[in-house]
Amino acid sequence: MAVDLSFYTSPLSEEIRDEGRAEGRVEGRVEGRVESHAEGVLLILNVRGIEITDTTRDRVTTCDDLELLRRWLAHAAVVTTSDQIFDDVAPTDR
C-alpha cells in the first residue's frame, strides 16, 4: 500500500516550513543577543578589575531575560563588586 505524501509538497506544507524557519531565525537572534549581553556583563567587570564570583558568573550565564541582562550590563559599568549588578539601583556616587 502506497502512502500519500502529497501534503509534504503542497503550498500549505511549504508555508508551515517557512513559518518555522522564520521563527527559528528570530529565536536564534534573541539567543545571540542574550549571550552577547551576558558576555558583555562579565567583560566589563573583568576589564574594570572587579572579581567575578562563581555565583555571579553562574547567574549571568544562565539568565535568558534580555532586559534583565541589559540592566546588569549598565550596572557593571558602575558597581564596585560583581554581586552589586543584581541590585535594583546601581551606585551612582562615582
Rank of each mutant, 00 (worst) to 15 (best):
E19I: 12
E39V: 02
R94T: 07
V26D: 09
D58H: 13
D54T: 11
V79N: 06
D58I: 04
G24I: 11
G49K: 10
E23C: 03
D65Q: 09
E15N: 10
R33D: 05
G40V: 01
S13A: 14
I52G: 05
T56I: 07
V79M: 11
I85P: 03
T81P: 06
D4F: 04
R25N: 09
E39F: 02
E39Q: 12
D18S: 15
E19P: 00
D87A: 14
R21C: 04
A76V: 00
S36V: 01
T92C: 00
H75K: 00
V89N: 06
A2Q: 15
R70H: 13
V26N: 06
T80L: 00
V26R: 15
T61C: 02
G40W: 00
E19F: 08
G49D: 07
M1N: 13
R71Y: 05
G28L: 09
G20A: 12
G24D: 06
V78P: 00
R94E: 09
R17T: 13
E15Q: 15
R21G: 06
F86K: 09
R59G: 02
T62I: 04
S6F: 05
G32V: 08
F86D: 12
R25S: 11
T55H: 07
S6P: 07
S36K: 13
T61F: 01
R21I: 15
R70K: 15
G40S: 08
D54P: 04
L43S: 09
I16W: 07
T55M: 05
T55Y: 08
A2M: 12
L42P: 06
E27W: 06
M1E: 14
S13Y: 15
W72F: 09
S36M: 06
A22Y: 11
T61G: 01
R70E: 15
A90E: 03
V30N: 07
T55S: 09
P91L: 04
R59E: 10
D64P: 03
S36N: 10
A74H: 08
P91T: 14
A90Q: 03
A38T: 03
R33Y: 02
R33I: 01
D58P: 01
R33S: 05
I52M: 05
